[in-house]
């Protein structure tokens, strides 16, 4: 009940329009930049072909560059790289970029969901009628529903754009990519929405909740980065004992960051994508559990 009421309230408010606009603007900006770069590369290859280069060789070079780009930035292994290669590069880059923006977006969207009610004490009208857990979950699911809707709109827009600009991108493939993108984005955002709920439950002032949320987000990014930085692949030529010494314990820090698991969400192998999804849902449950513990124990 709180879920539907909160969703209705948010949909009636100007905030949803502003958020959609913000998300759409960010995506369109990313799309324009990536599209511009892709167009520039295509123009260069056209010039090369016009100058007498072998079109097949140029195409092969382009394909290899595409594969290398995907492997370097978006895939940890060959299976994933293969799976991502079927997605138009512009679509993949824009989606991945917008995914990076999602945690911030979730924070901006829901930072005051609880602190905005605890500060002015309007939550008192609710808690005398319903459990604190219902209030928290109702607001969380309202945020999740709204974000899922917004992401669907943006993903549909992106996929339609790719469908009309990439002749090889068939409707069936587009539907599959759209479903994968949307589901992975929903799973991905669940952890960050729950983190936002936690940050909102911790403080009475919405502004403090937002700042703390941003600090935690940067903390997670930093943790994942540090973990990745120390994740040195030992040289296979080295003796086993030396290879073992090269793996720093700091590399394990990445497992404590929800950010670390996001890259596998689009993995074709269920053992990878499933683990990534479970990790995100696990973090979401952990954050929600903490948020409830805070809200349950606090004076209103």
């Amino acid at each position: 009940m709180i879920w539907t009421a909160e969703l209705g309230r948010t949909l009636r408010s100007a905030r949803v329009v502003v958020l959609l606009l913000l998300y759409a603007m960010f995506t369109v900006t990313a799309l324009s930049v990536v599209h511009g770069i892709a167009k520039s590369i295509t123009a260069q290859t056209d010039v090369q072909v016009a100058a007498g280069a072998d079109p097949e060789a140029v195409q092969k070079l382009m394909d290899e560059a595409h594969k290398k780009f995907v492997s370097t930035f978006f895939a940890d292994d060959d299976a994933m790289a293969e799976a991502l290669l079927v997605i138009p590069l512009v679509l993949l880059v824009v989606f991945k970029t917008s995914l990076r923006f999602l945690p911030l977006f979730a924070g901006i969207m829901g930072f005051d969901q609880l602190s905005g009610e605890v500060g002015p004490r309007s939550i008192r009208y609710l808690t005398v009628r319903s459990r604190r857990s219902s209030v928290m979950l109702g607001k969380f699911f309202a945020q999740a529903t709204l974000l899922a809707g917004l992401m669907l709109l943006v993903d549909v827009g992106l996929c339609l754009h790719a469908r009309f600009t990439e002749p090889d991108f068939a409707t069936g493939a587009m539907a599959m990519v759209l479903a994968r993108f949307w589901v992975s984005a929903v799973v991905f955002s669940s952890a960050y929405l729950a983190l936002t709920a936690l940050c909102s439950a911790l403080f009475r002032q919405p502004a403090v909740s937002l700042v703390f949320n941003l600090i935690v987000l940067f903390g997670f990014w930093l943790l994942a980065l540090v973990g990745e930085f120390f994740r040195l692949e030992p040289d296979p030529k080295l003796p086993a004992e030396l290879a073992g010494q090269m793996v720093s314990k700091l590399a394990y820090l990445r497992y404590a960051s929800v950010w670390h698991y996001s890259s596998d969400l689009l993995h074709p192998d269920l053992s990878h994508s499933g683990v990534a999804a479970l990790a995100h849902l696990g973090f979401a449950l952990f954050f929600l559990g903490l948020a409830y513990a805070v809200l349950r124990g606090r004076d209103l």
Partner: peptide, 19 residues
């Protein structure tokens, strides 16, 4: 206790702002 006062109590809280 969570939900213990539902339908039992009506409250006019002091300084609680209406949304």
């Amino acid at each position: 206790t969570p939900g213990a006062l539902k339908r039992k109590v009506g409250v006019l809280p002091q300084d609680a702002v209406l949304p």
